[in-house]
Structures are given as C-alpha cells and as structure tokens.
Computed example of a mutant assay.
Amino acid sequence: MRKTPSSASRTTGAAANSPGNEYSVDELARVADSTVRNIRAYQDRGLLAPPEKRGRVGIYDDTHVSRLKLIHHLLARGYSLANIQDLIKAIEEGHDLRSILGLENAIGGRWSQERPQAYSLAALATMFGGTAPAALAKAVELGLLERDGLKFVAKSPSSLAAGAAMAREGIPAREMLDMMSDVRPHFEAVAKVLVDLVVRRLDRYDEASLPPPADVPALVEAIGRMRPLAMVLVESEMNRALEEAAGGYLGDRVATIMKKRLGHVPDENRKTGTASGPPRKRATKR
C-alpha cells in the first residue's frame, strides 16, 4: 500500500483557517483550480492526504486546498512530481520542512469562506433578465463562472447575486463585466501589496530556509490574525474612494443644474466658502 500523508500532517496549521470549509472532490477541484483526475493522481502518489470518509462520500477541507496550491506552485517552478514527493516524505519524517505545513495553510489557504454553487442557464437568465452568449463567454473568461456540463458554477455566489441585483437596477451585465475586466489589474496590484505586507514577518529569516519549527506556531497565528485585518483595510479604503467619487459626481451634477437653471455657476469665491452676492450693476450717469 502506498504511503499517504499522516492525519497529524493534515491537521497541522488547521487553526489558521478555522472554521474551515468542506468540499466534495468536484468542489475541491474548482476552488483549487485543479481537476478531479489530478487530485486522484496526487492521492495515489502520496502527495495529497485522502479525504475523510462519511459513508460513501469523501470530504476534503482547506488543508487539501493549500496542499494542491503548493503542488501547483512547485510544478510551475519546474519541480517534478518525484521532487515534490521527496519533499512531502521529508516533511513526514520530521525534517525542518515540517514547518511549511503550517505556513502553507496560513499563507496559501483560501481567504473566502464561500462555497461554489451551480446554476442552470435558465436560472442565470432569470437572475439577469436574459443571458446573452457574449456576456456568458466573458463571465467564463474572467473566471466568474465555470462550465460544468449544462450548468455554470460560480466560485463566489455572493458576487453573482450582487451582479444580478445591479442588473435589476438597469445596469447591463456586459457593462459590469467590462468594468470588472478593467479594474481587475488594479485589485491584483493591491492584493500583491497586501500579501507582501502580511508575509513580511518571514523576511527576518534567510530566503533559502524555513523558520525554526519553534517559531512557526506564532507566525501562523500572526498571519491568521492579519489576514482579516487586511480585508478590513481594503473595505474601508474602498468605501472612502466610493464616497469621494460619489461626492465629486454629485457636486458636478449640482453645478450643471445651476448653470442650466440659473444661468451661472458658483464663482471661485463661493466655492471656497467666501460670501459673494450677485454681480452689481454699474452705475450710470444721468
């Protein structure tokens, strides 16, 4: 029988994502950007722990998500499955690489607690008042929806529901998708800065080595605390920017109305709060 990761290894660092998510094998493949076939293959090679059995159903959790992300990251950097298998074996044998188990879950684990949800084409049409093929294709391209046979799976049902609510307010789905395509690079840049900020606690260690095992629990807890705080900062700054943008638009709109109705716009003194009455008529000599 091929050796698989121990249950102790599977639970290392679990506190970093408590309460954790649970997934079927199909859901795990979606949230980890993998395939069911690859998941089975990684389990057969001992790279991925088997799921918890509940009757005839296998249940996976966030430790499986972070392990899959680690495998994908190492594969992208040119490591072979054999190399990764040696790494996992070294971890299980108690080498210092064991530290990576807690850190991979704290840093690489999911930030969202949402579970994917499947929608039929008819359900999407009802939500958005019709579904143009071009809009569906754009949503799939952006990763907002994923085809699954005759259905579409949303990784973030709440985002889909928000988009549907905006569509009911009269904003075309295609315009929302174009907006998301335009702003995504900016969000990715913000995310990069925040991740760098959160993991900067690792900077005091040599780049080519992991922290000492004794330091790992405190690091995992610190990173786990900072992740939700980073989300608060993003939400707060986004609210501030939206308020400023809305206020600027309202000011411009009011100025336009005054110009149209009153025939003038506030002069510079009035804009700065200085009292200023209407222009005086020039006196004429009799």
Rank of each mutant, 00 (worst) to 15 (best):
M231Y: 06
M179E: 14
A137T: 14
S120R: 03
A135R: 11
E235M: 09
L142F: 09
A218F: 02
K138I: 06
A173G: 02
D178S: 06
A123Q: 12
L229A: 11
K192Q: 14
P217M: 11
D148V: 06
L145Q: 10
A218P: 04
V153T: 07
L136H: 10
Y205R: 01
M127R: 05
R225A: 00
F187P: 06
A165I: 05
E235Y: 10
M231V: 02
L229S: 03
A161D: 09
V234A: 10
D178E: 08
V216T: 10
A189G: 03
A123E: 15
F187G: 09
E207G: 03
A222D: 10
A134F: 10
Y119L: 13
L160C: 04
G170F: 12
V140N: 14
A137H: 09
G129T: 09
F128L: 08
A173W: 06
V220W: 04
A241M: 14
L233S: 04
V198T: 09
V183S: 00
E207I: 13
R184D: 08
P157M: 07
A135L: 11
A161F: 01
M226N: 08
K138T: 13
M238C: 00
S181K: 03
V220M: 07
A164Y: 09
L202G: 07
V234N: 07
R225C: 02
A132S: 15
A230S: 14
K155R: 15
K192L: 03
V198C: 04
L202F: 03
V232Q: 15
D182I: 12
E235S: 05
N239A: 13
